[in-house]
Amino acid sequence: MNEEKTYLGGLLGGLKTLCVGLKTTMREFVTPKITEQYPENRDELKMFDRFRGSLVMPHNENNEHRCVACGLCQMACPNGTINVKSEMYETEDGKKKKRLVSYEYNLGSCMFCQLCVRACPHGAITFDQSFENAVFDRSKLIKKLNREDSKVIEKK
């Protein structure tokens, strides 16, 4: 108790603050709750479109992506999360070109810094809004982002 307060004044003043507190909590008690019920609201739950869930490589309807296997994303990554495997092949007109074999992405060590997405000159990779990424085995966190038999979109 403060020295300047009298015994009774301190007591009553203190009781008053306690009552203000009780009033506040009671007001919250009857306020409707804003809790979201997660698994039930899956249908209407929409993440913000900038949310970084996991790295994906968008493919178009012809099973084509934009990755030219340049490896810039791999170099930009601070954690060694991305592993781009490429091979050289010869086109019909005899030029040597590089193409993507597999684009491995380890969700487990990704820290969502977005450097890979920014580094990519072709916009081949982006983050999607999936957030239910839990798996039972760590090896399942290593994902192959390019689909089977997918090709790079040829420039016209």
Binding site: F48, R50, R52, M111, F112, R118, F127
Partner: peptide, 24 residues
């Protein structure tokens, strides 16, 4: 934060010379 930066705790927003994305 999440709407503009894409993260809630790990915001990942400022970059050298600017910010990651324009404000939402």
């Amino acid at each position: 934060f999440e709407e503009t930066c894409g993260g809630r705790l790990i915001l990942n927003y400022n970059t050298i010379g600017g910010v990651m994305a324009d404000i939402h």
